[in-house]
């Protein structure tokens, strides 16, 4: 029974510690090339199952206008902001905001990492965008007048924290006590390995006394 429980716990740990499974929809909006509004659509990420974590990402490709505006922001060392609107099965639309340096986004050929942090009860607490600092000198991939965005999406789970593990500690103490009751642990080291700390000083003492009391030197024969 105990083993069964253990296996079960192991399995459970390997699984994602989610209480409920559900779908998730993240609407992405960014702040470039929007005519009059502050934010306009960049794409959409949808998950059928949070537990499975596989997402379908559909995003627009940047046009020349997008790139120009991004370059303008990059010249000022400005930030490219993305607003994400998250809808799930049991919560209404929640808004998150995240920004990356426009310069780095361009240098990384429009590739970013999107992570969505999810509580065990299935609620999203943050959607963050990050870019890497690997500045690749290759120019942007030009593809039929469009620049596609490379996004990697990860679902990150807020794990359950460890609790002070008293049970296994008590078991460990019990094992040690049992071992002590059975008799001392067999020390299978060699005699020299065990008692070198006693032998060596004696040896040194003998040596030193040998050095300090040298044999009276034989009289030099003239």
């Amino acid at each position: 029974m105990k083993y069964f429980c253990l296996i079960f716990v192991c399995l459970f740990k390997n699984l994602v510690c989610l209480d409920y499974d559900g779908w998730l929809n993240i609407k992405l909006e960014h702040n470039i090339n929007c005519k009059n509004e502050k934010f306009c659509s960049r794409g959409n990420i949808s998950l059928k199952s949070i537990r499975a974590g596989t997402a379908i990402i559909s995003q627009i490709s940047f046009t020349k206008d997008h790139i120009d505006e991004l370059k303008e922001i990059a010249d000022l060392d400005g930030l490219y902001s993305v607003r994400s609107l998250v809808t799930s099965a049991d919560s209404k639309e929640t808004e998150f905001l995240s920004s990356v340096k426009a310069k780095l986004f361009l240098e990384n050929r429009l590739s970013d990492v999107i992570s969505s942090w999810i509580l065990p009860n299935g609620e999203v607490i943050a959607v963050t965008f990050q870019v890497n600092n690997l500045s690749q000198n290759q120019s942007l991939q030009y593809h039929k007048g469009e620049y596609p965005i490379n996004s990697n999406f990860y679902v990150r789970h807020v794990d359950l924290a460890p609790v002070p593990d008293t049970a296994s500690y008590i078991q460990k103490l019990d094992r040690e006590r049992e071992a002590r009751e059975k008799g001392d642990l067999k020390d299978n080291r060699s005699f020299l390995a065990k008692y070198w700390m006693y032998i060596v000083p004696i040896a040194i003492f003998v040596m030193i006394s040998g050095v300090t009391n040298p044999e009276p030197a034989p009289q030099a024969s003239r």
């Binding site: 902001s81 998150f96 999203v124 607490i125 943050a126």
Partner: peptide, 12 residues
């Protein structure tokens, strides 16, 4: 400029 916003307790 507001650059990021998260809801650490979830929507609740």
């Amino acid at each position: 400029q507001r650059t990021w916003s998260v809801r650490l307790g979830g929507a609740g």
